[in-house]
Amino acid sequence: MSRNYIKGLVYFSALITFGSLFFIISFILIKGLPHLTPALFSFHYTTTNVSLLPALLTTFMVVGLTLIIATPIGVFTGFYLIEYAEKNNKGVELIRIATDTLAAIPSIVYGLFGMLFFVTFLRFQYSLLAGVLTAVIMVLPLIIRATEESLLSVKDSLRQASFSLGAGKLRTIFKIVLPVAMPGILSGVILASGRVVGETAALMYTMGTSTNLPDSLFSSGRTLALHMYVLSSEGQHVNESYATGVVLILTVLIINALSTYLSSRLTKETTK
């Protein structure tokens, strides 16, 4: 009797969990798809036609620049933590605490720090550059964590074989360890780009919300998520907000699907 009761509860909670998430996706799709008109993809934003193309292009710019800066820093940090530093080193523990701290900071605090440091202190104003640098700091812990995990999953025997053939540390890392660990690192990098696409609070106070496509690193712009936030809080373009939501969700889902696919490939290869 009580067994059925518990079983019912478990089924019910699974139903609610997946039901609510399914509801969100389908709600946005149903409300947004009919309004996804070609006009929304016009190159210029006007107050009558709230085109999302400038925001979409800005998003790609921000993601691209962020990854170009954050990936080498994050990957090399991972190298140091796993390949160079001695195990049980006190300093490594400290750095792990530092990256964990970074990962735990709410994005609004990143945004405020970016405003204080990049926008005001370094006088970048509300600009693409300030937004990108803030996003770099935000995604670093993700990339470091992914790099660490995939480096750890590489068997030590590979490294030892490489060393015994006379290869140095750096050569071993680049020629032996990195190729094996690549899918995992890539999956982390792609996950990081998904995070940037969905980010609003950290970018609002660093990039501003200008509707134009930024023409230099020092001009303001808005990403797609910010665009949707502004549209929906103004409340005048509800249909367009839904349509923007469709594009935003699809972008993030594609990015995350890629990341999941790559990391599943890594686990398959390492457990072979």
Binding site: A225, L248, L253, I255
Partner: peptide
């Protein structure tokens, strides 16, 4: 996949 849905979508 759903972990990545942007928070602004939830807000909206």
């Amino acid at each position: 996949l759903l972990v990545g849905i942007p928070s602004v979508v939830y807000g909206f």
